[in-house]
Each structure stands twice: as C-alpha cells, then as structure tokens.
Amino acid sequence: MNTFNRLNALDVTADVPVQANPLLSAAEENGLDRLSVSAQKYMHNLDGQSAVYLDLDTSVDDATLVLNKTHVASMFVAQDGVLLGIISQARLGSRHILKEAQLRGCQRSDLVVSDVMLPLKTLKQISLTDLRTARSGDVLVTMEAHGLDYLLVTAPETGRICGYFDLVELIKVGGRSVNQLRPAEHFNDIVVSVLHHSER
C-alpha cells in the first residue's frame, strides 16, 4: 500500500498572473496504481498567451454556456488581467448557486460569477519545483488536508501561476473517497460550516 506525502502548500499571493509551464513533461509511467505516477500527468497546464478568462460580471448562465462551448471543466475569473477566482461547471450546476440566490433574494439568472466563484485567496499554491518528484497521490492528500477543490501551481522563478489541479479529477483517478471538508482555522469557519450544512 502506498503512503503519500503532503506537499508544502502556501497561501495564494495577490495579483498572480499566468505563464506557460516551463517544466518539461516527464515520460509517462505505467502502472496499476494511477496515483503513484508523476503529478505532472494530471496537472492542467496554463499558457499565459492564450488563456481565456471570465469577467467578474459575467452572468452564471453565460458562464455555463462558455464552459460548455469551450469544453473545459473550469475557468479563471479576472478583472483587468488580475486573477481573482475560479469557477467550474460542477459549481455552476450545484445547489450552491440556488442557495446563493436565496440568500441574496434574487433569481439564479440574476447572479454573476463574482457572486459564486471560488476566490483565489481561499486556495493554496505549491511551487512547480515540488512537482519534479511528487506523485499524484501526494497532491491528492495535500488537497484533502487543506479542504481544497483546486490547488494552484506556480513557477519558482517568477511566482506566476503555470497550472492547477482539480480535486474532482484526482478523485476519479484515485478511485477512492476523499474528505472534502475544509479544516477550520478560526471559530468563524466552524459557524459558517454549520450554517452552510444546516437543513432549512
């Protein structure tokens, strides 16, 4: 049985731009345990030159349409070239959207991506250097430990985002259940979690 190691995940720094991943892909490893292969295999590489972002004021319906038309599961949200959050098809299709509309006293169609996106400041980042020897399972346990849906990867020389991992995809790869509850860092986090999961 494999034992995976948590990576050193840091808080996301402000105003992080995107650049192409400078690390060359390692040769694919074959094996029955897909979580033991290089983490690079399951990382979403970003190219700063051709990256497409959603504006903060894009409606949730338009965001859903863009994601469907471009055949991507998630997309960054930006304003004036500064990345502020990430939105996914899974989030747009979840009950979270309806709860957010109910809390705001509006219809689902009145919501914009800034209302429902995952702010980048709530995520963590790791250096691309850590991925040279990391396995997919290391990334999965790191995300599980921090309660993350996404883990950003930054280039060591510039600190720019060059890729990210999606928890849902890693769960599919690993074929095992994962604790997706975000650990509480403050008492307010516990209160928010209880209110979020309470039955109405």
Rank of each mutant, 00 (worst) to 15 (best):
N2S: 11
F4A: 01
N5G: 01
N5S: 12
R6W: 02
L7C: 05
A9K: 10
A14G: 06
D15V: 02
P17M: 01
P17N: 12
A20I: 03
L24K: 11
A26W: 03
A26Q: 13
E28L: 10
G31S: 04
G31Y: 04
V37S: 10
A39L: 07
M43Q: 11
M43L: 13
H44D: 06
D47M: 08
G48P: 08
Y53T: 15
D55T: 13
D55Y: 06
D55F: 05
S59H: 11
D62W: 03
D62Q: 14
T64S: 15
T64F: 09
T64I: 07
T64P: 05
T64E: 14
L65F: 12
V66M: 13
T70Y: 08
A73P: 02
M75P: 01
V77Q: 03
Q79K: 13
D80E: 09
L84I: 07
G85K: 04
I86F: 01
I87E: 10
I87P: 01
R91K: 15
G93W: 02
G105F: 05
G105E: 04
G105K: 02
R108Q: 04
R108E: 09
D110L: 00
L111T: 01
V113I: 07
D115V: 01
V116I: 08
V116R: 00
L118A: 05
P119A: 03
K121C: 12
K121L: 11
K121S: 15
L123I: 04
K124Q: 12
K124H: 05
Q125Y: 00
L128T: 07
D130S: 15
S136L: 06
G137W: 05
D138T: 06
T142P: 09
M143Y: 05
E144I: 06
E144M: 13
A145S: 14
G147V: 08
D149R: 13
L152N: 09
V153R: 11
E157D: 15
Y164L: 14
D166I: 12
D166C: 09
L170D: 10
L170Q: 10
L170H: 10
L170N: 10
I171E: 14
V173D: 07
G174A: 09
G175R: 11
Q180K: 14
N188A: 14
N188K: 14
D189V: 07
V192T: 04
